[in-house]
């Protein structure tokens, strides 16, 4: 079966029905291993002490906040250029999951910032741009809920997603472009990671586990969105059918 065949919502539902139990199993296994290594095996940082343990959830959450919006931007292109039947569904289903991971990044960052920086919040470029990302997620969810027709809502949402995607490079490079309180990139950078392997591997395993969790939740939400559209279509058919005649 070619990848393009998954564009058929019925095939997508059948495939994800089989895939989701396995995906849940792998997610729990990888995330469980990552959190165990992060909490019980990785050493305390020489500067941050045990507070570094917050990084094993904060960093993956922050990466996935951007990854989720990136997925939505790719879906928006699929909606506007190829009119892919699942692209709009994917964008709409990913938004609440992305918003949740962005909120997680903001709260865990704040809980790390208070003991380390002495403040819960600072209006610096990185934190402000991530807060804007969170507000964009909420704005898109509100927009989709405000427009009755999902096709029309999908196209309007897709345009807004692409306009908002300008925020992604701002988030990524904010620590380089401006003088911020937030530390610069320490994992994916020219010259290699600055993190010791004893902390880097648990962090990467946590990131893989959190990514699997993100994808699993997004696939579940996509299945719901397909079902919601089918119900809407059936109701429209039922409303247009004279009483006593089967739809």
């Amino acid at each position: 079966m070619a990848i393009i065949d998954l564009a058929n919502p019925t095939r997508f539902m059948t495939l994800t029905d089989r895939l989701l139990p396995w995906l849940w199993g792998v997610t729990l296994l990888v995330l469980g291993c990552g959190l165990y290594l992060g909490l019980f095996v990785a050493p305390a940082d020489y500067q941050q002490g045990e507070t570094v343990k917050i990084m094993f959830i904060h960093v993956p959450a922050a990466w996935l906040a951007m990854f989720g919006y990136g997925m939505m931007a790719a879906s928006a292109l699929g909606t506007l250029i190829w009119r892919h039947p699942l692209a709009d569904v994917a964008a709409k289903a990913t938004a609440p999951v992305g918003a949740a991971f962005t909120l997680m990044a903001l709260i865990t960052g704040s809980l790390w910032g208070k003991p380390m920086w002495g403040t819960w919040w600072e209006w610096d470029a990185r934190m402000t741009s991530v807060l804007i990302l969170f507000l964009m997620y909420l704005g898109l969810i509100a927009l989709w809920n405000a427009i009755e027709d999902p096709i029309k809502g999908g196209r309007v949402g897709a345009v807004l997603i692409l306009v908002g995607s300008v925020n992604l490079p701002i988030i990524k490079f904010s620590v380089d472009w401006w003088n911020t309180l937030h530390q610069p990139a320490s994992v994916f950078r020219m010259g290699g990671s600055t993190i010791d392997a004893s902390m880097l591997y648990p962090l990467l395993i946590c990131a893989i586990g959190a990514t699997l969790l993100f994808l699993t939740l997004s696939l579940m939400a996509m299945r719901n969105e397909i079902l919601r559209r089918r119900i809407r279509a059936l109701r429209l058919v039922a409303a247009a059918t004279p009483v006593g005649v089967s739809a």
């Binding site: 045990e50 507070t51 343990k53 917050i54 959830i57 809980l111 003991p115």
Partner: peptide
Amino acid sequence: FILAAYAVS
């Protein structure tokens, strides 16, 4: 702070 971060997540 550490426990709160994990609990909230």
